[in-house]
Every structure is written in structure tokens, then in C-alpha cells.
Amino acid sequence: MNRTLLILLFSTGLFLLSCQKSPDEDLRTGTVKITFKNTVKGNPLVLNTGVYSNSFGEQYNVAKFKYYISNVVMNGTQISAGSSEYYLVDEGNAASLSFSFTAKSQIYSSLSFLLGVDSARNVSGAQTGALDPLNDMFWTWNSGYIMAKLEGTSPQSTVVNNKVEYHIGGFAGTNSVLKNINLTVPSSINVPLNVDPDKTCEIFIEADLDTWWQGAYDLKIAVNPAATHPGALAKNISDNYSNMFKITDVKLY
């Protein structure tokens, strides 16, 4: 009887194991949380009431600030189903400023993502979730996503009601605004991108929207108060804003 019991235990144990993934150490996972902090030159962005000025001394305020993040990879490889999701980061919606996904436990050295929605999703019909046209980031007359949107006002703007309106999109050809962003942890931050099993590695990324007006190109509000369709201006603005991100902190918990 004893032996029978033993065999029984053994066999059920086997079945249990067969249910689990292989017990290989490398397959343990933790969580990567990415938190965006939208700023103007490092100062927290305050929608509507905050008044800022760019390096040309032009004053502006911001009513809307949104952008798509997709295809997140670490160390150059795709991390998990969650990391290949599409995320709409919207300053007007606090919940959208962070998102998480699981990642294989290890120490990573870099984080990359696409700022925008890859061209395939721009031409494959109706999408849902973050890509739902209800999010007001899809052009109805010229199919395609607005990859990043900045709206506000400026006394220097010459268009109706002193509007500043940048709807940046275009996914094909020389005027594509799609930007691959590659970030590493600056040496001043002494924390590695260490994803421990069952723990969280939270990466804080600052997005400085003041970069939209300078960098690769000097783009004064007085000259370019609006960019609302794909083209050279949108492309130039995207060249500027491709420098807006940096990692400012990493927390492990």
C-alpha cells in the first residue's frame, strides 16, 4: 500500500509539473512600469493656466498634450505582449501617464519605443483601444493617426483666437514623422534597469514639450502657429520633438 501511495504521489506530481512552464530560472518575470512626466524645461506642465515661454521669448499656454507610444523594446528586443501594445499618453488623463508590462527578469541597459503608431496600423482599417478613433487622434479626411498633438494659445500666434495647433502625423515617405526613441539611464542616476522576479522596475521619463520649437529646426510660433496635416513642417517639428524624452529616475520596489 505504501508503495502504491508513493507512485500515486509521484505521478500526480508529474502532472502538476507538466502544467507549469519549464522551471528554468530565466523565465521568471517582473514588472516594468513606465511613467511619463510632461514638463516645460523640467517644470511640471500645468494645462490651461500655466504660462510658459520658448527660447524665442514667445509666450504660450497648453490646453492639450498627447502622444502615442508603441512597440516598446528593451535591450533591442521585444519584451512581452504588453510592451507591444499601443499607448496614448494624454496629459489631460492622469491614468494614461503610466503603463506597465511584464518583462523577463534581468538587468537591462536600454529602453526604446516608437513615438507614434507604426505605418501598418495606419492602413489596416478600424482599430480599437488606444487606437479607437474616438480618441480624437485620427484624421478622417486623410486616413492616418495624429502621432502627437499639442494645442494651446500664444499672443504671438497670427491665426484665429491666437491658437497654437500642432497635429503631427504622416507615416509614409520622406515626411514620415515616426520616431524611434532610444533611451539609456544617464550616469547621474545610479540605479540599473533591474527587473527582479515579482518586483517592479519603474522608469520615469520626462517629456519636455518646449523642444517642439527648437533643436533640429528653429520654429517660431509667430511663423508656424499651426501644423495640421502631414508635410514638411510636421516632419520638422517631429525632428525637434524626437529629443523631448529623457530618463530622470528609476525606482525598484
Binding site: 492602413v123 482599417g125 478600424a126 478613433p133 485620427f138 479626411w141 486616413s143 492616418g144
Partner: peptide, 12 residues
């Protein structure tokens, strides 16, 4: 030719 897929046409 501004619309690139039949599914998104009705949005216009």
C-alpha cells in the same frame, strides 16, 4: 484618395 481603407471611410 484620402481614405486608405474602406473601414475608416464612414468616419468622414
Amino acid at each position: 484618395g484620402g481614405i486608405n481603407h474602406i473601414e475608416v471611410q464612414p468616419l468622414a
